[in-house]
Design a protein around this nucleic acid. Structure first.
Lengths: 233, 233
DNA sequence: CGTTTGGTTGACGAAGCTCAAAGCCGGTGG
DNA sequence: CCACCGGCTTTGAGCTTCGTCAACCAAACG
């Protein structure tokens, strides 16, 4: 999550409603006029775009503490869809109240701006990932990103977690097909880069090995530097 | 360009130096500590990332009026490289002065924040473009985006322009190879979607046809709505 | 003029896609 | 409790798109 605790609290001090949303539901649809921003309290969701031929591309994955759809809300018209992967608990914040908060509290505005800057940095890495890495590298990279993000919000061990996504959804995130994702995961396992007890579980035996294989350097996530350095990542 | 004229002027009222940079030079390198933001006054440049296997991915293309590297500057460490495509005239703005300006002038801060929001929207479209569109569609999409951006800054006709990029660079922007770009351009021409007098020139006979072929809808650029509507795009 | 840079084309190969079938697992209703 | 069902995963066979390698060409430039 790119928001600091104080800013998150300030947002939650705004009048808002808390909503439970079942899995595979669109919270916001591309093209909608948007009047609310959504803060994920629990569960996983993605932002995605549909392309002409019927395909879809997931452009980011979100979890607890992420403010999704601030982008849509501030620009007025949604340029992408927000969809849940799992049942989600979300805070629904009227964009008008958010604006008022940022206008009276420059520190919050800076924090939210910073959030959009990090968001952009992650997008750039994704462009590079889907544009220039081959399939196994691309998938390994995604697994690494997911691992670090999960750990950053204390949702699990970095080296042992459950993917909240089907192979179809992994395919939409990497620009591949579900069938190929399946084969790539099998090969990653065969090559000792991950272990899988169930299809969704990921166990990373050697972080450095997987990160090297996946061409993963965590800088673009702009997570807490000191912490990562202490852990040698 | 995503900045309004007033904000651009406010930036240029800051103490700054104007620099001429020859073509194919890196202005900022990935990993650098960054202390300046750069405003493009003339010429074309790109932002790009290198991946492990030696490849590069262009993540955005910039022209007159674009504030490149605000992202890098505000995050402190460059997560991408900025490189010129042509000789460029650029204003070099100390980030400290920019911060001071935004801290005392909320309207400017909003304008720059808006700029990063639009930047993010374009990144998302690029993820979808390289992730989920086939090569000819992808290239057509890029040609459309370029056409609209050029016209938005009055650098040329929307339907008839010169690409400031080699086919190598087009390949790096689309996640393809130069050879394949060459073939795709040939085929686009053969199919009557574009005409080319010289290798770099692009003449779009029928905008709607190319836009439909390239799965291009301009919303994500967040350009002046009224104007586009009047022109039926 | 030679050299360099970028564009063009052909032949071939590989990565990843499509189609299809089968297995697995959890949930649901009889 | 068991049978069935639907969503997800797995695997195979064949094919397409795009990449690689290599040669040649054209224009620009010193």
């Amino acid at each position: 999550m790119n928001l600091d605790t104080a800013s998150e609290q300030a947002l939650l001090d705004l009048p808002h409603s808390v909503v439970m949303i079942e899995k595979n539901k669109s919270v916001v649809r591309e093209g909608d006029a948007v009047s609310h921003a959504w803060l994920v309290l629990k569960g996983f969701c993605v932002r995605l775009k549909y392309v002409g031929t019927g395909g879809r591309q997931i452009v980011s994955i979100h979890m607890k503490g992420d403010l999704v759809d601030l982008q849509n809300a501030l620009l007025g018209i949604a340029d992408h869809t927000v969809q849940t992967l799992t049942p989600c608990k979300m805070a629904k914040l009227p964009i008008r109240a958010v604006r008022q908060l940022t206008d009276t509290n420059p520190a919050i505005k800076d924090a939210l701006w910073h959030d959009t800057l990090v968001d952009g940095s992650i997008h750039r890495e994704w462009v590079a990932n889907v544009g220039r890495r081959d399939a196994p590298t691309r998938v390994a990279h995604l697994l690494c990103e997911f691992a670090l993000k999960l750990e950053a919000v204390h949702l699990g061990e970095q080296l042992d977690y459950e993917l909240p996504m089907t192979q179809d959804q992994l395919a939409d995130a990497t620009g591949l097909t579900a069938v190929h994702i399946n084969r790539v995961l099998r090969d990653l396992e065969k090559n000792g880069l991950i272990e899988r007890i169930t299809p969704r579980s990921v166990l990373i035996g050697d972080w450095k090995k997987l990160a090297a294989y996946g061409d993963f350097r965590s800088d673009y996530l702009h997570l807490d530097m000191a912490k990562r350095r202490a852990q040698g990542r």
